[in-house]
């Protein structure tokens, strides 16, 4: 019992040590950020209309194409493609900038949770099982 307790404390100690700050202030991250920031003006109405949703792995997906006029759907698809390209690059870059490329998937999931947490009411988001629900 004592042994396990010790191990537990050790684990906590190590965990606490690892919780520093992540490096997220590099030119690449900043450039990706501003690219996403300027795209958000176009994405926002699509989120509000329920056309797009946020996935738990930190991406954007077309949730309900029917909410977009047919002729506009390719534009929405391109926006989603470009946004996901930036997001994937962002997660990879954060992992790389912190010398842990293997963190990429964890970072993507963390972002996924945070995007969803900060999404506005009425937006579509995925729950932990990947099911769509309205916030």
């Amino acid at each position: 019992m004592k042994k396990w307790l010790m191990l537990g404390l050790l684990a906590l100690g190590l965990a606490a040590q690892a919780q520093g700050n992540l490096e997220v202030d590099t030119p690449v991250i900043n450039s990706l950020k501003s690219s996403m920031q300027s795209r958000f003006a176009q994405l926002e109405p699509l989120f509000s209309a329920g056309a797009l949703g946020l996935t738990r792995d930190g991406k954007v997906e077309v949730h309900d194409p029917a909410a977009i006029p047919l002729a506009q759907r390719p534009v929405a698809n391109n926006l989603v493609g470009a946004e996901n390209r930036d997001r994937a690059a962002l997660y990879r870059e954060i992992a790389r900038a912190n010398q842990h490329p293997e963190w990429e998937a964890d970072i993507a999931r963390t972002f996924g949770r945070r995007w969803i947490e900060k999404a506005r009411p009425g937006w579509w988001v995925q729950d932990d099982n990947g099911q769509w629900k309205k916030k």
Binding site: V80, G81, N84
Partner: peptide, 9 residues
């Protein structure tokens, strides 16, 4: 093009 761009290529 629509196919590639929707995949972020």
């Amino acid at each position: 093009r629509p196919w590639l761009e929707s995949r972020g290529l």
